[in-house]
């Protein structure tokens, strides 16, 4: 594209954004909101995935013992556990130790335990570390059959639930995103249609004197792209603000919560959001101008 021509296009876009200022603002607003929600869903899904995989990599099985077993039985269980293939370490955690750990994990909220009236609901347990996450599932099944073992819990259960949740969030998010994208494209194409309609005579003359379709299309396409870009950039800014605030809050409460670090995650999100904005804007204007090019 020649320099003179791009100068002409940019001028045209500026004029029409100014002329349709309210519609332009409305378009930018809807793009911003839609993309903000899109971004939010991406962030949530990505974090759920990360949580799931971080849990998945934990290769520990908690083996809870029945309350009434003898010391002898406990030793037998410990020996049997050590004999299992793939087991690297077996550590005994008594119910006293367990409640002590629980107390320290609660920290400031230790008072919650007073509701228990000094009884200890936690069972005695073994912490079994296996060498390979793939055998966690079969190993815990075997362990559960041991006499005196109440249950063998491993992170996989949680992981499976998390994956289900992620899937659900993903589907809901997808549906909402498709709906919002449709609405946004509709609004942008209406805004551009105003411009196109206001200039339909000019377009017809351009066609008669031999302007190429692309020459005619560019200013409108550019207008859509500008609207989409501004909306995308705004929602990227809002997302950044929301995520940094939220992560700070969560880390305050749970320092080791497996959130995706802000850098470079938010940069990727911003790129995705801004590109989607540009795409939506371009699509919206393409739709609205198509009809007017048929001369």
């Amino acid at each position: 594209m020649k320099f003179r021509t791009s100068e002409y296009f940019i001028k045209e876009v500026a004029i029409s954004l100014k002329r349709n200022n309210w519609m332009s603002l409305a378009s930018i607003g809807t793009v911003t909101i839609s993309l903000f929600i899109l971004g939010l869903f991406i962030i949530i899904v990505a974090n759920l995935n990360r949580m799931a995989s971080s849990l998945e990599s934990q290769v520990q099985i908690s083996v809870y013992l029945q309350d009434n077993i003898t010391k002898q039985q406990r030793t037998t269980i410990e020996e049997d556990l050590k004999k299992l293939s793939g087991v690297e370490a077996v550590k005994y955690v008594s119910k006293d130790e367990a409640i002590k750990r629980f107390k320290s994990r609660l920290g400031d909220q230790e008072y919650l335990l007073t509701a228990l009236d000094n009884t200890n609901p936690l069972p005695d347990a073994f912490e079994v570390t296996v060498s390979n996450p793939n055998i966690v599932k079969t190993a815990s099944k075997t362990i559960e059959k041991f006499k005196g073992v109440d249950s063998a819990v491993y992170a996989q259960d949680v992981v499976e639930h998390l994956f289900e949740l992620t899937k659900l969030v993903r589907y809901i998010g997808l549906a909402i995103i498709i709906f919002l994208a449709g609405a946004t494209i509709f609004i942008i194409s209406n805004t551009i249609r105003l411009t196109v309609f206001a200039r339909r005579k000019e377009i017809a003359i351009m066609k008669y004197v031999g302007a190429t379709d692309w020459f005619i299309r560019w200013p409108f396409l550019l207008e859509g792209i500008v609207l989409g870009f501004i909306g995308g950039a705004l929602s990227a800014i809002f997302l950044r603000f929301a995520y940094t605030t939220l992560t700070a809050k969560i880390y305050d409460m749970m320092a080791f919560f497996p959130l995706i670090p802000i850098h470079p995650f938010l940069t990727y999100i911003s790129i995705i959001i801004i590109c989607s904005g540009i795409f939506i804007g371009a699509l919206g204007s393409t739709i609205s101008i198509k009809r007017f090019l048929e001369v």
Partner: peptide
Amino acid sequence: RRSLGVIFQDYRLLPNKTVYENVAFAMRVI
């Protein structure tokens, strides 16, 4: 269409452009 010049009964000039700009328009858009 660039090899054709077309004239209509209703002139079809752009009202917000001057005489010069109306004529130049045909050259600018190509």
